[in-house]
Design a protein around this nucleic acid. Sequence first.
DNA 1: TATGAATGAGCGTTCATTCAT
DNA 2: TATGAATGAACGCTCATTCAT
Lengths: 216, 216, 216, 216
Amino acid sequence: MGVVKTKRMPRAVREQQMLDAAVRIFGQRGYMAASMDDIAELAGVSKPLVYLYLNSKDDLFSAVIRREAAALTEAVREAVRLDQPADRRLWDGLLAFFTHTAQHPDAWSVLHLHARTHGERFAAEVTEMRRDIVTFVTRLVAVAAREAHGNPALADEEVAGLAEALVGAAESLATWANATEGVTARQTAATLMNFAWSGLGNLMSGNRWTPSTARP
Amino acid sequence: MGVVKTKRMPRAVREQQMLDAAVRIFGQRGYMAASMDDIAELAGVSKPLVYLYLNSKDDLFSAVIRREAAALTEAVREAVRLDQPADRRLWDGLLAFFTHTAQHPDAWSVLHLHARTHGERFAAEVTEMRRDIVTFVTRLVAVAAREAHGNPALADEEVAGLAEALVGAAESLATWANATEGVTARQTAATLMNFAWSGLGNLMSGNRWTPSTARP
Amino acid sequence: MGVVKTKRMPRAVREQQMLDAAVRIFGQRGYMAASMDDIAELAGVSKPLVYLYLNSKDDLFSAVIRREAAALTEAVREAVRLDQPADRRLWDGLLAFFTHTAQHPDAWSVLHLHARTHGERFAAEVTEMRRDIVTFVTRLVAVAAREAHGNPALADEEVAGLAEALVGAAESLATWANATEGVTARQTAATLMNFAWSGLGNLMSGNRWTPSTARP
Amino acid sequence: MGVVKTKRMPRAVREQQMLDAAVRIFGQRGYMAASMDDIAELAGVSKPLVYLYLNSKDDLFSAVIRREAAALTEAVREAVRLDQPADRRLWDGLLAFFTHTAQHPDAWSVLHLHARTHGERFAAEVTEMRRDIVTFVTRLVAVAAREAHGNPALADEEVAGLAEALVGAAESLATWANATEGVTARQTAATLMNFAWSGLGNLMSGNRWTPSTARP
DNA sequence: TATGAATGAGCGTTCATTCAT
DNA sequence: TATGAATGAACGCTCATTCAT
């Protein structure tokens, strides 16, 4: 089990092996339940080496978060082509997102569940990544408003709220998809895209629901 | 700090105090990081008494989940009046949901974050509650399709997917609202209702987006 | 399970119920592993009552030892008739002993295993009983020497050693018999009587083995 | 008190130190009353190291039993010379047995008292050793019957019963000798040998006692 | 570059015992 | 006569972390 025990690797390689092991253990057990012993064993090295390279459990967790957050944003960014219309860009982004989270469930577990569950410091690190993505989606939505519906009059706060809801829904769906057998990334992306695009479209046309329209 | 130390309470009262303390500690620290010592201290009793009444950390966590899940579903159920039209019922439900989660952030933390993160047994207990709510929303959406749009032709699976997305979005938003200063339950409910109702409306009219409509 | 819960018994009766329960629990689990909770529950009373009547775990254990030691010596004493010849008295004593230990295995467990295993105080209490029995047997052996073999010349220390060996063998056999299926008290008594009487007889005739008789 | 604190020993050495300490603590207090803290302190190491090497209290106890059982059987086996006549072999075995139990009273306490008192698993481990010895003695008795008395006609079951009684008496005497001041191993062995050899001799000559021979 | 040896501190759990009624 | 409520003290065990090489 774990990495085959190989001696005398260069530091950079060893570090990646340790991070790989850490992602798996943290992702499956959470921060507190993960033990440095297990991580070291899975990485195929002795515990002192882990401390030598990664300093402490906190720092190790932090390094995992940063590496995986970067990988996820990178995957989404690479998938989106700027010469495409807004709806296509949204679709490509969603598909890349769900594909990545499906291929790296432990990493997604760390980012979405465990990092936000254990202490301000780690939550902050994820929040940063999240802000990147929300900003990206926000722009997309704003552009989409003009491009697809010719209606620039969506208030900024409203755009922010919508982006937040969209991202939140995506996060929820990613976790749900990983926990559910037989759901492909494509299907998940389609479900959300369909829902979102329709909602947006309707909003753009000024067709909205408010409590006051309900009969008391 | 914590509850004022009061001696010789009847068992039922003490148990509730313990559960109150447990909700706070579990909600803020998670299952693993919560210590029975801290819970006992916050409850104003000695640790052995906690064990005498609640048996074990697992059982205590389980009791917390069951109590808070019941409270949340009850809050939503009470808010919804059957003699109202579907849209109004959805709105009332959402408002009650976000109000409750805002007023009991630790309880929501336990239910949404920690219970699902720590072990099958607890996840199962939350899943049960969730199924109740998803079923409730599913019916609402189906009824809404007929009532508001005169279009009964929404496929069952599609309804289920929509309900899942809706509930997932609601859960995400609840957590986000609790973590964000100055967001009221009413605002959160409005954002989601607006988004959802518009999306649904559009879907009912057969207006949907699929990847194939995008230019390759 | 345990004693049927009956309220308001006279003290003497309650005490016996508690001692009964204590014998079972102590006998089956040993002093340390026995819990006052279990004893109180088996006795059908609340824990404070046990403390009210028996003071402490130590005192309870002590009371058990004294009661059971008295019962055992009494059983042996009653079986032996002074108007019988020595060999018959030995036989009757052995039979009574093995019968009693077989009928009260938990009591025997307490006396032979647990009391001598846990602390000077309790060991001393058993030792007292043991001394009674050893003295009794010693006299028997001395008398037997005269009666059956007409040889009074067995040294006192030798008689003591033999009695010790005889009692030790009896104790060992009692425990062994209780742990072995299908062995009756009568059989056990016969085995030992046979062995002992033969050995004694031979000794009386001056037929003994010493290391010096062995070839170096 | 305890072993002088020496740092950085190889594992094998430390393990023996821990077992030494465990024998003393278990032997003097019994399994339940022995605390891992005390054992660690007596061994001159911290508690985690004991767990690192010996896994658990149960495993530690088990290791102690196995080591001491092996040592005892080895001591007896080494003392017995096959080129000696049966009576001499029995004497040598007894002497070695009582010498070893006198020199390692705590070990004997563990084997005879505590291991058989605490749980099936440990009892089984001792029973195995005991069976070895009983078998050894059984053969000796059978051979002795032929060699010394020219009477091969002792029934198998009878031989087994005698061996059991002999071993039981030896065990009892070992414990008694350790608890009694001023008794040497040689004296103890002589007492038993004398008793046993005489008894055997008499039995071989067909001279036995049965209840029916007693006057009613 | 790499590790065997070692520990301080804490956690979940239990138990004998007492208080107030 | 009898008990529900409550706790101080310990115990088995684990873990993040360091030292010496």
